[in-house]
Design a protein around this nucleic acid. Sequence first.
DNA 1: ATGAAAGCGCTAACAT
DNA 2: ATGTTAGCGCTTTCAT
Lengths: 340, 340
Amino acid sequence: MKKEPSLSDVAMQLGVSKTLVSFVLNNKGDEKGISKATQKKVREKVIELNYQPNQIARGLRIGKTKTIGLLVADISNPFYARIARIIEFYAEKQAYNVMFCSSDEDENREKILLQMFRERQVDGAIISSTADNPEFLRSLIRDGFPFVLIDRYFENIDCNYVVVDNYQATYTSTNYLLNKGNKNIGFITLSPSHISSLHERKAGYLGALNERKFENKSDYILEVDYSDVKKRNYQSIKNYFVKNNELTAVFITNNNLAVAVLKTLKELNINVPNDIALMTFDDIDIFRITTPSVSVVAQPVDEIGKHAVSILLKSIEEENSQFVNKILQTKLIIRESTNK
Amino acid sequence: MKKEPSLSDVAMQLGVSKTLVSFVLNNKGDEKGISKATQKKVREKVIELNYQPNQIARGLRIGKTKTIGLLVADISNPFYARIARIIEFYAEKQAYNVMFCSSDEDENREKILLQMFRERQVDGAIISSTADNPEFLRSLIRDGFPFVLIDRYFENIDCNYVVVDNYQATYTSTNYLLNKGNKNIGFITLSPSHISSLHERKAGYLGALNERKFENKSDYILEVDYSDVKKRNYQSIKNYFVKNNELTAVFITNNNLAVAVLKTLKELNINVPNDIALMTFDDIDIFRITTPSVSVVAQPVDEIGKHAVSILLKSIEEENSQFVNKILQTKLIIRESTNK
DNA sequence: ATGAAAGCGCTAACAT
DNA sequence: ATGTTAGCGCTTTCAT
């Protein structure tokens, strides 16, 4: 790799100081009273040499890298991929760049990746945390490292977060299914189950059942290992449906899992919605074009990304800004899969 | 943000030199003959202070950031999201991090983003280029900036790339459809059409038709604007099917586009595969669970990502390594959508 | 077995 | 209107 021209190359060739060149390039030329003529000379030389400022050096000097870290379970999950795109969009508007990492829902990996982000001096991070014991988040707060949680938060940790009202979402959805006359409603979710969003989704489901005095059979709740879904091992799902064939509806807490369930039902020759109604979290493309199309709880993905970035950047740029907590509402979209 | 402890904090508190601490932390303690006892002291102090090396400073000093850039059209396209995940996986193994950007198939954006990558001193980049006039890639080569193209390459630019045999892929697919007795086979692709992969896919389709002496009506080829797909404006697709209702099969060159077509066909009440057979590029989850499931040309995504990283890192770490060109084979996966 | 000092490329306070 | 200089936190050569 050829050596790139540096500020001093530009300065030297022009017979001026680095300071001057730096001022001009940072648009402080007028403010600092650099003559128009000199400014022009500088800009021309920059183009001639194809000089590109070294942002690493700049970052070291000013203590900011204009980079933010994005830490999610899996960047290839359409929900997170979509969020990544939105985050990129808003970050770029303010000249920030984004670095991503996938934790694979592994708490230990999450810690390591976060540490890596910090060593690389990202100015802050957007995190979908998988932590069960989020002590390490406390230490981020103690150090004043700016971050905002998305999708999941922790009751006993006071920090920035942007989440949706998961309880309300599944409470409403379950009621919808009950009102359609379903008496045996299954619930399929992911483990690790300590994750706040999953936890609350389950609570919303149970809340709706209890309120209507429906018994909630524990058999009707299935927790599938994240790693099984990743490895496409759907045995537990198959067993679940074989065993609980009196179910008339099922709610699924995550898009990946819903895909797994749809595949399994297809294999088992169980028809949606005639044999069983189906509803899931996450409005991704796929659910609009399946036959039947799938009723979903849509998260306001754009809003999540937008708020996450704006809260983070505020947190980075203003010392001691207050923590902000944003709880967004979801939207129930009814399609064919719940239409018996 | 609290000031982080630095190397000299560690050194000072221990009453030793920065050099020594640096040696120990870079595992050169033994080689440099630092006594075991001192090494132990250093490591303990590091933990006590929770010292985290500043990789920006390190990067400036050694001229490497251990970061690679990933530039694609849209990180939220499942094909690219998947590749991103793979690239992350292999990069991490060698202690590299990845920064991503989406060009939106905009050549000018691509140039700017690439420049930004260079200013941020990424050690190299993996690029799915949208360029029509790829002169700026030549200047990367001139500067010795390491990069590898994926998905698309340029005939007259000698550089690293990892692509699939697109001609063969559509040639085989079209022949499959012809053998099934289809006489009027449509072809729906994206513009900008100069992109090598799209270009070759079209050539493969035409090649198969010509060989069998089938006339290729230009009406049967539809080019949809990338921006229309993004904006979910499917009017041209609708018109196409209304106009060409003698089609018995259609091949689509990209997953996003296929989703758009499936939605449109559903709206128009055109049944797949009874009214029309359908086949597309890219084996993403969605196509396995639709009814009917969709026949696809599967790209070896894992292989693409794996090779891209390994070629790039080699290119970064070895001066004057030869350019390598990898052309991978696709796999035709037949599902229900072509089963009349 | 350990340290001093230079320098990566930049910014900014302080000259002049 | 422009220049000198110190220093961000690290690595590494050369001393001792």
